[in-house]
Design a protein around this nucleic acid. Structure first.
Length: 908
RNA sequence: GGGCGGUUAGCUCAGUUGGGAGAGCAACUCGUUUACACCGAGUAGGUCACAGGUUCGAGCCCUGUACCGCCCACCA
């Protein structure tokens, strides 16, 4: 007689302590350099590269970062386990305006001299100092999240190599005529006193007014008309008017074209011109033209040769010049103060013609939050229209794909209407533009000062002093080079050869224009194959959802509804946060994050932990020699089949970026299949007399657990690595273990266990509905049990007994008096209830079942008696429906019989 | 003004080629049998926004309507 197998003392603690484990695991990975480029790769496999969207050097981790980097890490860990040569390239960008802002504020707070007093060189030095001390804290935060970047390869957009790339690109594009300098209107931020690009301007609707002013005709009435009335939402700009425009078709003004009007206050004479721009239906149909402070007016002025008359300085304060002839008392006034004054004076002068309230769209600087002023300045531009062409073609022709695909529309829409990209910024922090000016203003562009000095000498015929352009480049200019500059370009490094092009880019939709589009343009221009064709920087662009709070509002500091990922990690662990974000990351829909969900998925981790603990208590040990295909026990064959199915599903879903489905598949397999049924069904095996069965079960459980650790590793890297290390003498880290393979499934075993699950569930339902005490052991009798069923009963007698609280199972010809009866397939299972419960309960239960069956049967009946269905539907569908109907019919017969018996017994 | 997305259980959402409406959470009823109360067993809950159409058959495809959200756009 073999000895029972008593549960052993567990070595694992009762609950998992993320706080304790995560730093230890992180350290272990770090020590092993587990995430270095190519670490764990198997020979003959492809490379897999992701460049991290570089966070701002000033940044700290918010939920959007947590989501994006979790998803990237899932991909990276998944591919690494698949044996690929993986590089996840980390780095950050210098964030021109943001960083300069931070340091300037710091100077102010410490009552130190401001940057102007300090001078450029010292100020930039100060920023570098700030960067060393407080920049890049986000990297430690990403490490806490478990991001498996190759941290040894960290880059910074301002470091030496990347700066070299920037200069190289600028000079080349300049020489090709794709970068040029131009004087035109730009979006000017009066707070930061720099130009910004269109993308950094946010149009917002605000309550405003539209005022009307009259400009009198200089040479007296025409057709009885003495003045022309214009409307404006920005009265102060009238001081800079260069003309009044009307539509050529506008009969009202036909005879006024070419006449002069007097501009009040500025007391200048300006012409009435015709142009297609004014809409005769809108307002008075006459538009004032302020070419130097309005984008539309600028175009009108340009094509009609109307002078552009600037009114403001860099702080958007009024200036007085001979050209604008603005009265002296306006000098230095803020534009909004000047607005009031113009209104007052116009009214005093008698030219005021009314006002109406109006919602107007106004441009705001995305960083400064103040109203942007269109200003006439010299700036550097990229000919984006030209560079967009190959970038559009790549997506059109499917060489780069967006996921979800719908974002391609957004991409095309923007790319096809792209405007020149203003790349110069009047800041000090950034890549200074490699352009120098001669005494006559001639431009010399080159990689180094020596290079341009040589060129200047040649041009002027003597050594000439040049002045360098003080401006720096838009931060996005250097970010646009990220996929190749981080790999060493312009040097021909082995990394560049190996890891470019990258595989996937993961980012938020609002970055498509800022970054994705520009990486496409730059990469296609500079990275060429042997035939000179541009190579796309990545094959897939995954656009991740936005994280919102649980009621759908955007998380923001000002609203105070943000959830700090670091606080979440402190409370629940990084694994819980990651799993939650992954299972919520549905394509094409925002993530609404409810903290309750995080607790729920933390529980999932605990569940797995305890499953391992339970296994350990029952002598489950990893057996190198266990061969899943040789498993004999039905229950083992079943769980292996389920494992295979889960493996296939999870793999396919990660490949498709369906993170929520992948996480959901893993969740269901672990909790519902493995814990709820497999471990429960193994309990009698562990405590039973069949030693061979026990040994196989122990090995199989260990095997499945190990596969679970692998499958969950991309989602919950810390806990799974910990369990992996603790459950066997492992030669490898889990993060380098081979990703599971789906195998052939045993359908017979699946059928058998599904029957068992159904039987146990049904018995439990009946017991609960009848109000039978949970502890009460019952007898069961089976009618119409065929040979196969009898065999199954023998196999699973112990399991049924334990899980359904059934102490004896016997065959019978008829149902014993007063039984509850369950019909599964062709057999009827009877639980004698006499003396235990009232039969009215059982009667109504059976009635209910009959009602449901009748409904299904009549539905199918109707369907199948519809000739058109039988004629038109595929044969297979019709066959299935017929089979279902037959099954329901037979089930109905059995239940009717059971019902009749009950009626007999209760003597009703 | 143009474009995109959404509307499915009390809440948050799945539902990938049209073929018997699903999950998690919450609720309710029970409960400690070899792990886990961060647990187990069970129960209830839906006119798939609305109106048409295509089809043997529609949550899914088409048309329209309503409401919500987002993006882009220069009406002074």
């Amino acid at each position: 007689m073999s000895e029972k197998n008593p549960p052993g003392e567990p070595a694992l603690a009762k609950t998992y302590d993320a706080h304790l484990v995560e730093p230890q695991i992180a350290q272990m990975w770090d020590k092993a350099q587990a995430f270095a480029a190519g670490a764990g790769a198997r020979a003959g496999e492809d490379t897999f590269t992701i460049v991290i969207p570089p966070p701002n050097v000033t940044g700290s981790l918010h939920m959007g970062h947590a989501l994006n980097n979790t998803l990237q890490d899932i991909l990276v860990r998944f591919e690494r386990m698949r044996g690929k040569d993986v590089l996840w390239q980390p780095g950050m960008d210098h964030a021109g305006i943001a960083t300069q802002m931070v340091v300037e504020r710091q100077l102010m707070e410490n009552q130190q001299p401001d940057r102007h007093a300090m001078g450029r060189e010292k100020f930039v030095e100060k920023i570098w100092q700030w960067k060393e001390e407080s920049g890049g804290i986000i990297f430690n935060q990403l490490k806490r999240l478990g991001a498996s970047c190759d941290w040894s390869r960290e880059r910074f957009t301002m470091d030496e190599g990347l700066s070299e790339a920037v200069v190289e690109v600028f000079v080349k594009l300049y020489n090709e005529g794709l970068i040029y300098k131009d004087k035109r209107l730009v979006n000017w931020d009066p707070v930061f006193q720099t130009a910004i690009s269109d993308l950094e301007v946010e149009q917002k609707e605000v309550d405003g007014h539209m005022w009307s002013f009259a400009y009198p005709l200089v040479d007296g009435p025409v057709d009885g008309i003495t003045e022309i009335v214009i409307s404006t939402t920005r009265p102060e700009t009238m001081l800079g008017d260069g003309a009044v425009a009307v539509h050529p078709s506008d009969e009202r003004y036909k005879n006024l074209i070419g006449k002069m009007v007097r501009l009040p206050i500025a007391e200048r004479h300006i012409p009435i011109i015709e142009d297609e721009y004014p809409d005769p239906e809108f307002g008075t149909g006459a538009v004032k033209i302020t070419g130097a402070h309005d984008f539309n007016d600028f175009e009108v002025a340009r094509r009609n040769n109307i002078p552009l008359i600037p009114l403001m300085d860099g702080e958007a304060k009024m200036i007085v010049t001979p050209e604008n002839n603005v009265p002296k008392h306006y000098e230095g006034l803020d534009r909004f103060v000047a607005r009031k004054l113009v209104l007052e004076e116009i009214e005093e002068l008698g030219f005021y013609r009314g006002v109406e309230d109006k919602v107007i769209a106004q441009p705001f600087g995305d960083r400064s939050g103040v109203v942007i002023e269109p200003m006439l300045t010299d700036q550097w531009y990229v000919n984006a229209q030209e560079m967009a062409k190959p970038a559009i073609a790549s997506v059109r022709e499917g060489r780069t794909k967006f996921v979800p695909k719908t974002w391609e529309n957004t991409y095309f829409n923007w790319m096809e209407n792209i405007q020149p990209w203003c790349i110069s910024r009047q800041l000090w922090w950034g890549h200074q533009i490699p352009a120098w000016y001669g005494p006559d203003g001639r431009i010399f562009v080159g990689k180094t000062e020596n290079e341009v000095l040589g060129a200047a000498e040649q041009h002027y015929g003597k050594v000439t002093v040049l002045t360098r352009d003080p401006d720096v480049l838009d931060t996005w200019f250097s970010s646009a080079l990220w996929p190749f500059s981080t790999l060493g370009w312009p040097e021909k490094t082995p990394e560049l050869a190996k890891y470019y092009p990258t595989s996937v880019l993961s980012t938020a939709f609002d970055i498509i224009f800022f970054w994705v589009a520009r990486m496409m343009m730059m990469s296609l221009h500079f990275m060429k194959d042997e035939d000179g064709k541009g190579i796309e920087p990545f094959h897939s662009v995954y656009i991740h959802p936005l994280v919102r709070d649980k009621s759908g509002a955007k998380m923001s500091k000002s609203k105070g509804n943000g959830i700090d990922p670091l606080e979440v990690i402190d409370e629940y662990g990084a694994d819980a946060l990651r799993f939650t974000l992954a299972i919520l990351a549905v394509q094409g829909r925002d993530v609404k994050l409810d903290p309750a969900r995080i607790a729920g998925y933390r529980n999932f981790g605990t569940k797995l932990w305890n499953a391992t603990r339970f296994a350990e208590m029952n002598g489950v040990k990893f057996e190198e020699n266990f061969k899943p295909q040789d498993a004999k026990l039905t229950i083992n064959r079943w769980i292996l089949a389920e494992l295979s199915r889960a493996t296939a599903d999870i793999t396919a879903n990660i490949e498709k970026f369906r993170f929520n489905d992948a996480a959901g598949d893993a969740y269901k397999f672990v909790w519902n299949s493995f814990c709820d049924w497999y471990l429960e069904l193994l309990k009698p095996v562990f405590s039973g007399d069949d030693e061979a069965a026990r040994i196989e079960a122990q090995a199989c459980a260990a095997y499945v657990l190990a596969e679970i650790y692998k499958l969950l590793h991309p989602f919950m890297p810390f806990m799974t690595e910990e369990l992996w290390q603790r459950t066997a003498q492992r030669q490898t880290l889990l993060c380098h273990a081979s990703w599971p393979q789906a195998t052939e499934r045993d359908d017979a075993a699946a059928n058998e266990i599904n029957w068992l699950i159904k039987l146990v569930s049904d018995i439990r339902s009946v017991r609960a509905e009848m109000g039978i005490k949970p502890g009460l052991m019952m007898a069961m009798f089976i009618i119409d049990a065929d040979e196969q069923l009898q065999k199954r009963i023998e196999t699973h007698r112990a399991a049924i007994g334990r899980l359904a609280r059934v102490e004896s199972i016997e065959l019978a010809i008829t149902a014993p008096k007063g039984s509850a009866q369950i019909v599964i397939d062709d057999a009827t299972y009877c639980l004698p209830l006499e003396g235990i419960v009232d039969f009215s309960e059982e009667r109504s239960r059976l009635e209910n079942e009959l009602k449901n069956l009748d409904q299904e049967i009549s539905r199918l009946d109707k369907k199948l008696s519809n000739e058109r269905f039988v004629a038109n539907a595929p044969d297979e569908v019709v066959k299935n429906e017929r089979a279902k109907l037959a099954q329901y019919q037979s089930q109905k017969d059995k239940i009717s019989a059971a019902f009749a018996r009950i009626e007999n017994i209760s003597g009703k």
